[in-house]
Write a protein that binds this DNA or RNA. Structure first.
Lengths: 239, 239
DNA sequence: CGCCTCATTGACCTAGTTCAATTTGGGTGG
DNA sequence: CCACCCAAATTGAACTAGGTCAATGAGGCG
């Protein structure tokens, strides 16, 4: 159940038996939500954080004009609101795209983990910092990249993130967002996103269709996106 | 020297004598840099983090086409690269706008703080999460807000952040960014930013001139920006 | 069968960019 | 004190990436 998290950790850190057990022991309670549900609402006090075991979700903010900006796409193995441990409340909503299975990590348990297994505590902090790094890369996308680069960049990002949790195959990955939801992430209109997807498809790079992304030419796609995976911190590190 | 940090902490948390001393004791070494210097370069391994005691800086990424996206403006009292404690290297550069006085916080000292004063450790984590929250709000700006709203929003943000560290007066605040640097933050061209600044000035809301922002009508400016300071987490919280 | 959401396409429009020229003001060498 | 320089600000004019509005397909499902 917690496998995607362990994959995400192991691709960066060696995890001791004790640490692994320490994490497993406190993450026992699960929670299921349907598609298009608000998992955590902006401003509400939080006593626990949630890990995605299965499904796709996002961080988003709704504006008073009815539009919405998605700030990060959350995949299996991601904590959706670990940020609420130090913040106590979130500045944004967390919403499911698909039905999700979530695992609770009580804030009290995090405090205990930090006291007893400080290295594991630092790993949790690490994951929240990767979220910040992803935010920064999205700022570059929204601020500097053309519509076509932005689309390509997002598809590359999701590919690399899903790969480490074993959710890609040789041809691509399951990707259940609608075009509207992609637009809400990329700051584009549905019309223009559709054009860009067609352009990428006709260039022989990638096809997004029926909840699936099929990558025809990864190198070409990454070049198109000016994609550099460094910001995802997927390489091994030691502490 | 460390005063702005203490102000930033005290507006959110009660700090015990022990905690305050614990922080002061490990932050003794200072560092000075001139204007327009790279303080921390993307990718280089970090052994300590830096606090701004004086001056203005930013997080930024340079693109291969020579343009640059600024992701956050760092003010006195801000840690510029606390993120590097869990990440070990940064995904972006930190650059000074003005001459800066910085104070070192060695990563080893952070590890000790977490072991001995876990609440203080959580406060450090908190500050990195406020950075993430600011990133998210900027994503909303770049993705959804008009140029005029974006400009107004940034000026409101800096006002609120400077106010808690005592760097505002009744009329506004010192703000040394050039219009080009504002553009690199907001994803706008210099021409258009200039038009928006004129519009805001002629609407009687705010004037940016000679390194100073003068706010004529704070309520009006915040309404123009659809600004809500909640994402800065400036209110007291308890842990 | 009819409804609803999502994807696709076409036509027109505008916010913001780009290119280019001018102004301003502070700094500096003579 | 003045002439000159340079970075930054300002303005004008033409252009375009991407948005808006509107209509049409195309599945999925009660």
């Amino acid at each position: 159940m917690i496998d995607p998290l362990l994959s995400a950790i192991r691709c960066r850190f060696d995890l001791s038996e004790t640490e692994e057990r320490g994490l497993l022991d406190v993450m026992t309670e699960t929670l299921s939500v349907g598609a298009d549900r608000t998992i955590t609402r902006e401003g509400e006090p939080q006593r626990f954080s949630l890990l995605i075991a299965e499904g796709f979700a996002c961080r988003s903010k709704c504006l008073d004009d009815g539009s919405r900006q998605i700030m990060e796409i959350s995949l299996p193995g991601d904590f959706v609101d670990l940020h609420s441990y130090p913040l106590q409340r979130l500045d944004h909503d967390v919403t499911s795209f698909t039905p999700c299975t979530l695992m609770k990590l009580p804030h009290d348990a995090i405090t205990d983990i930090i006291a007893e297994m400080p290295r594991l505590g630092r790993i949790l902090w690490f994951f929240t910092m990767v979220d910040a790094s992803i935010h920064r890369e999205w700022l570059v996308s929204l601020g500097r990249r053309s519509a076509r680069e932005r689309v390509a960049h997002l598809l590359c990002e999701v590919y690399h993130r899903l790969r480490v949790v074993g959710l890609t195959d040789g041809t691509g990955y399951a990707f259940p967002l609608t075009q509207l939801e992609m637009c809400e992430s990329l700051g584009l209109s549905t019309v223009h996103l559709n054009h860009m997807l067609r352009a990428l498809r006709e260039a022989g790079l990638v096809t997004m269709r029926e909840g699936r992304v099929t990558i025809h030419d990864l190198d070409g796609l990454e070049k198109q996106a000016r994609f550099d995976p460094g910001y995802l911190f997927l390489d091994p590190r030691d502490f």
